[in-house]
Amino acid sequence: MKIFPRSLLTVSVILGLSAMSSSLLTPRVNSAENVNSTKSTEEILLSQGRVFCTVARIRTGQLAVRFNPGGESRAGLNNGNTVRLLDREGRWAYIRIVDGPTRQLNGVEGWVNSDYLDCWTQ
């Protein structure tokens, strides 16, 4: 999974694997915000709900949205659908569908393979 600044500047971050020095990715935290300084950039962005992703690179079928990592599928996503990244566990991403293949799926949460997500921060 890749994370890009919304302006799509040249800095890209793969969650868990930084393409740049980690010092370049350290968020500036206002001391009045009482934020634990040991939190990673990923944890802070996820807790703020600021990471969005587009489904990409699906060649056939759909990206399965699952009840559990590797578990039973509950829905499917197409290339170009948008999700909000809520959590990560290894290769698995816990997401909420923002703009799915149908309006009925918007708001549904579940686990997807993060290899098929291109993400950005807002």
Rank of each mutant, 00 (worst) to 15 (best):
K2M: 15
V13L: 15
R50A: 12
W120T: 13
N79A: 01
W92C: 07
L63K: 07
E43N: 07
G61F: 11
T60L: 06
C119T: 07
L46G: 05
L63V: 04
T26L: 06
S23E: 11
R91K: 14
W120V: 08
R96Y: 03
V112A: 03
V83M: 05
G80L: 07
V65W: 07
L24D: 14
I97N: 10
M1T: 13
R66E: 05
S21L: 05
S31A: 09
V11T: 15
V65K: 05
G107K: 04
M1Q: 09
A56W: 05
V29H: 01
F4C: 14
R84K: 15
M1D: 09
F52I: 03
P101G: 15
T60Q: 12
G16V: 11
T54L: 08
S12E: 09
I44R: 03
F67Y: 11
V83K: 06
V11P: 13
T26V: 06
A32H: 07
S40C: 05
P27Y: 07
R103V: 12
G80F: 08
S21F: 01
F67A: 15
I44N: 00
T121S: 12
R6W: 03
L8F: 12
L85V: 14
P69S: 09
F4P: 03
V55H: 11
A93N: 10
R66C: 09
C53P: 02
G110W: 05
